[in-house]
Design a protein around this nucleic acid. Structure first.
Length: 429
RNA sequence: GGAGGGGUGGCAGAGCGGUUGAAUGCACCGGUCUUGAAAACCGGCAAGGUGAAAGCCUUCGAGGGUUCGAAUCCCUCCUCCUCCGCCA
């Protein structure tokens, strides 16, 4: 949720930013509506406060009258208080309505894109921030996509997963399952080396948490929901990891706070179809290691780039060709101010697959989370929150299998061998 | 799932209808003292809204109710602890 103060103080920047997200002139009126509504909120609040103040002092007087045995005077004042209360009730109801409307409008407003965010509305408008300059993998003539490799070497059973649960729920087995475990351990170790504290969070969250990080109400349909318990299955570890800090006031000296965690991620992905959803390209359940930082506003962009370096280094170690995209205004998530996507080239399909998304949310999430820090002067400000995938497994596995295939089998990159315990997947397995 | 007892400031812990936003202690910050530190002493120390400020208002797990007035009484929910049952 955007800070109203930003709309007031930096209205021009806000308008410019929202235009990048494809806001029409008509929708831009929202900004003025919000400011106007906030003015009305203040006026109503001031009036209510005045009435309550009056009520409080009269109540005190009544107390004093009773104490000194002047019941008649006390009862007289009671009538006066009653009329004040009636008025206060009316004002309070009006104020309540204003607040509800204001909140609805605010919640519908996405984050203001950073000034560097490219113009454009569709994924085609994303700008390549860092291209792959080295060699692309050269495959032999009989190379195939990962779903065929998975079947050939008995690594992943999509049919069995579909039988047990439904499509989009792969079942990993043998060396396939071991590869999953290896990647998770590798990613977590790397994150730990980079100073992130390892967390194992709950995999279901309540609506307060989903709301605070922006999954609700924006992406309600994206999440699996358990009605009986009013809980959501997490679509990413970002939700529980960021909510660790909901409502907290952190000492400035403790920033940045860095946490990481591996979790399965559950996504309904309603409405997807075609080649996009083949094999591991898009599934309902996949594993991911997420990195989250709570950072001082002055340093958040510097930190964002450090996170970029961290992800890049992981891909280097896995020997996967990748590129970094600077997402355009229209393709960025609702809560993000600046997002870089990492795409890995999957040679068996000859296509780029998104494996990581690294974002700075500035104070947008923090505003809903009410996560703040106290500066040296004792002043309290909202923190900035950032997160990134480091990394998402399913598509990494896809690229790993496809790019390292040969007639004999699949080679495992050196960095991973200590974790897999094997260096090759062959037909003999 | 059943029975009982709790949820108050960063922590501990009073308050149980009328200057209680909240005693007291610890922690923390500033000062005095000291060569320095500790101790001792003095002072400060919740958040949000509004306002230039003084101030005013709100908040004692959450929501609702009673009352002129609620941290204090009533109802609902959440949560924690103890005991019983079940269980990886």
């Amino acid at each position: 949720m955007i800070e109203i103060q930003i709309l007031r103080d930096e209205k021009e920047r806000a308008i410019m930013g929202l235009k990048k997200r494809g806001f029409t002139e008509e929708r831009l009126l929202l900004v003025d509506q919000i400011i106007d509504l906030d003015d009305r909120r203040k006026a109503a609040q001031t009036r209510l406060d005045g009435l309550l103040s009056e009520r409080n002092s009269l109540s005190e007087e009544i107390g004093n009258f009773f104490k000194s045995g002047k019941a008649a005077e006390a009862n007289q004042l009671k009538d006066k208080v009653q009329s004040i209360k009636n008025e206060a009730e009316t004002v309070e109801a009006a104020l309540g309505e204003i607040k509800v409307t204001l909140d609805e409008l605010l919640v519908s407003l996405p984050n203001i894109p950073h000034s560097s965010v490219p113009n454009g509305l569709t994924p085609e408008d994303n700008v390549v921030y860092k291209a792959w300059s080295k060699e692309m993998p050269k495959l032999y003539a009989g190379a195939v996509p990962h779903w065929e490799l998975a079947e050939k070497y008995n690594l992943i059973d999509f049919k069995l997963g579909a039988f047990i649960t439904g499509s989009g729920f792969p079942l990993y087995r043998g060396k396939g399952a071991r590869l999953q475990r290896a990647l998770i351990s590798f990613f977590l170790d790397q994150a730990q080396n980079a100073g992130f504290e390892e967390i194992q969070p709950p995999l279901m969250v309540n609506s307060d948490s989903a709301y605070a990080t922006g999954q609700l109400p924006d992406k309600e349909g994206q999440m699996y929901y358990m009605e009986k318990d009013d809980l959501y299955l997490i679509p990413t570890a970002e939700v529980p990891l960021t909510n660790m800090f909901r409502g907290q006031i952190i000492a400035e000296s403790e920033l940045p706070i860095k946490v990481t965690g591996h979790t399965p991620c559950f996504r309904r992905e309603a409405g997807s179809y075609g080649a996009d959803v083949k094999g591991l390209n898009r599934v309902h359940q996949f594993d991911k290691v997420e990195i989250v930082q709570i950072e001082h506003p002055d340093r958040s962009y510097e930190t964002l780039h450090k996170m970029l370096d961290h992800v890049a280094q992981l891909l280097d170690q896995l020997e996967l060709p990748y590129r970094i995209l600077h997402l355009c205004g229209g393709d960025m998530g609702f809560t993000s101010a600046l997002t870089y996507d990492f795409e890995v080239f999957a040679a068996g399909q000859q296509r780029w697959l998104e494996v990581s998304s690294v974002s700075n949310f500035e104070s947008f999430q923090a505003n809903r989370l009410k996560t703040r820090y106290k500066d040296a002067n004792g002043k309290i400000h909202l923190v900035h929150t950032l997160n990134g995938s480091a990394l998402a497994l399913a598509r990494i596995v896809a690229a790993l299998l496809e790019n390292n295939q040969s007639e004999e089998g699949i080679r495992i990159p050196a960095a991973l061998i200590p974790y897999t315990g094997y260096d090759f997947i062959g037909t003999a397995d």
